[in-house]
Each structure stands twice: as structure tokens, then as C-alpha cells.
């Protein structure tokens, strides 16, 4: 009698079986892709970093030669420049972009003059091909801007896009110029979810507008800000700017190189023997990115103004 009861207990109910079948059917497609495109792909990437590749695609064991090449090979200067350019680009877009994003988001949240039109206009660059935007920007920088400076101030401006010393500055400006679109909408949407009662209570207590923004709104949307920051740091070295659209594959000024573009160039150049170097570079920058991201995450946890209320970020 006891045994039958135990068996009954062990045997899953019909309800459980249908649930398991349903979950299996639902998850098989996404998980298969995760296993191929994340687990298998990255496993391959690690293996490839220690291999050499012949022009026909066959591989051989190459120990740490690819890593040595990264530090001492012909591309080491380029890799070094790319590494620092990515860090500079991130720092500049963070220092200039983040406060402006918050201010713009706050402007939309307060539904000030032209907010509804601005919400549409800021999404427009996403509607047009990046090729058009780059084309116009390049034409303006190469023809329009020098012409304007000559006519207005009599100053002759060199070609800033092609000049090795100014090209990176142009890239930073271009990234910042196009950088405020979806992020402003996301920040303002997060602000709209704030309980009006909290804002009203602040007003009764006499908070000024800036105090309201920095002492009430920013702390309450901090989860969104920190998610943005963490994923931003995590993708710090994948940024390639629009270098390919600006210069094509082979004419990028050396001082403008970025890690994303360097890896893109390796993949696109069609030389299979260079692939393992790309894999080695990707392993190295992952080694730098992981502690950096975890450090930022830890720091954001410490400074989260709502930490005492909601607990740590997972």
C-alpha cells in the first residue's frame, strides 16, 4: 500500500507532463541557437586563438604565437591605438552624452515645448540608411564647412576627415551627434513610470527643478541608468564607429583605428590566416572587459541611491 503511494508520488502527474512538453517545445528553438551562437561560437573562438590557419582553412596548433603577435607583431601599434581610442571614445561619450541624455529625457518627461515633435525627430536617423547620413556628414565636412569658414572668417580649413590628427576627433563628434536617439526615449519613458505623488511631495517640500531631477528622478530611474552603463562598459571594445563608411576597408587614418574596426577588417579582408589573430585579440579584450564591467557593476551597486529600498542589482 505504502509502495503504491510512493510510486504515485514519484510518477509525474498529467498536468506536469504537459507542462514539461510545452516548455521543451517552447525552449528548444531559442536554446539551440544560444548553444550554437554563444556557447559553441565562443568555445571555437578560444580554441582558434591558440591555432594557426592555412589559406585553405585547415588549422594547426600554434600555442601562444597569436598572442605574441598581438603584442610584438606588425599590428601591435595599430592594436595599441585602437585600444586607447575605444577607451577615449567611451569616456567622452559617457561624460558628455550621459548628462545630456538625462537632461533631454527630463525635458521630454516634463512635456515642454515641442516634446512630441522631438520624440519623432530623434528617431528619424534610425529610419534612414546610415550610408546617407555618413555621406552628408562627409560632404559637409569636406565641402560645406571649409567653404563656410573661408567665406565667413577667411580661414582655410584642412580636410579634417582625412587628416590623421583630426580624424579621431571627427569620429567622436559624429558618434555624439548621432548618439541621442533611442536612449532619450528610454530615459523619458522610465521617468514617466515615476509615481506623480513622489514628485508632488517634493514640490510641497520646496525642491527646485534641478533638485527634483538629481534627488528624485535620477535615483528612481537608477536601474535603467545602471543597465545602460553596465551594457555600455561591456561593449566598450566592440565600438567601431563609422570608420568603414567613412574610409572603406583600407584607407582609415592610423590614429583613428578602433578595436571593433580592426577586428572587422581582419574578418572582411578575406585572409583566413589572420583569423586566429582576431580570435586572440578578442580573448585579450574580453579579459580586460570582464573585470572592468564587474567593477562598474559593483560600483553602481554601492552608489545606487535606492539600494536600501530595493536591495542590490542582481
Amino acid at each position: 500500500m505504502e509502495k503504491t503511494a510512493e510510486r504515485k508520488k514519484l510518477k509525474p502527474s498529467k498536468k506536469q507532463v504537459t507542462k514539461t512538453i510545452f516548455l521543451t517545445c517552447m525552449l528548444i528553438y531559442p536554446l539551440a541557437q544560444f548553444l550554437i551562437f554563444y556557447v559553441y561560437l565562443n568555445f571555437n573562438n578560444i580554441i582558434m586563438a591558440f591555432q594557426g590557419m592555412r589559406p585553405d582553412g585547415s588549422t594547426y596548433w600554434n600555442a601562444f604565437e597569436n598572442f605574441k603577435f598581438v603584442f610584438h607583431g606588425v599590428d601591435s601599434t595599430l592594436i595599441n591605438i585602437s585600444f586607447w581610442n575605444n577607451l577615449k571614445m567611451f569616456a567622452l561619450t559617457l561624460v558628455i552624452g550621459m548628462p545630456l541624455n538625462l537632461l533631454f529625457g527630463y525635458y521630454l518627461y516634463k512635456k515642454k515645448f515641442g516634446s512630441s515633435i522631438i520624440r519623432v525627430v530623434y528617431m528619424l536617423p534610425n529610419m534612414v540608411s546610415g550610408v546617407v547620413i555618413t555621406l552628408l556628414f562627409m560632404k559637409f565636412m569636406e565641402i560645406g564647412f571649409p567653404q563656410m569658414m573661408q567665406e565667413l572668417f577667411g580661414i582655410q580649413i584642412p580636410n579634417l576627415i582625412r587628416n590623421n590628427n583630426s580624424a579621431f576627433g571627427v569620429q567622436v563628434f559624429y558618434t555624439l551627434w548621432l548618439g541621442f536617439s533611442t536612449s532619450i526615449i528610454i530615459y523619458s519613458n522610465a521617468m514617466f513610470s515615476i509615481d506623480e505623488g513622489v514628485i508632488e511631495a517634493g514640490k510641497i517640500d520646496g525642491t527646485t527643478t534641478l533638485q527634483e531631477l538629481f534627488r528624485i528622478v535620477v535615483p528612481l530611474i537608477f536601474p535603467t541608468i545602471s543597465t545602460y552603463m553596465i551594457t555600455g562598459v561591456a561593449s566598450i571594445f566592440t565600438v567601431a564607429g563609422s570608420l568603414y563608411l567613412f574610409y572603406g576597408l583600407n584607407d582609415v587614418p592610423q590614429k583613428t583605428y578602433m578595436m571593433g574596426f580592426y577586428l572587422f577588417k581582419i574578418a572582411m579582408a578575406g585572409d583566413l590566416t589572420a583569423y586566429p589573430v582576431g580570435a586572440a585579440v578578442s580573448i585579450l579584450i574580453t579579459i580586460v572587459t570582464v573585470p572592468l564591467t564587474l567593477g562598474v557593476r559593483w560600483l553602481l551597486n554601492r552608489v545606487d541611491p535606492m539600494r536600501d529600498v530595493y536591495g542590490d542589482i542582481a
Binding site: F37, T231, A234, Y275, A279, V281, S282, T286, L294
Partner: peptide, 15 residues
């Protein structure tokens, strides 16, 4: 999201 394996385009093409 937090710990991505960065820049594996060459391997992606191989896979």
C-alpha cells in the same frame, strides 16, 4: 549582457 565575449567576428564567419 554583463560578460560578453567581445569581437569574435572572424570566428562567427567560420561557424
Amino acid at each position: 549582457m554583463v560578460i560578453p565575449i567581445v569581437g569574435s567576428l572572424a570566428t562567427t564567419l567560420t561557424v
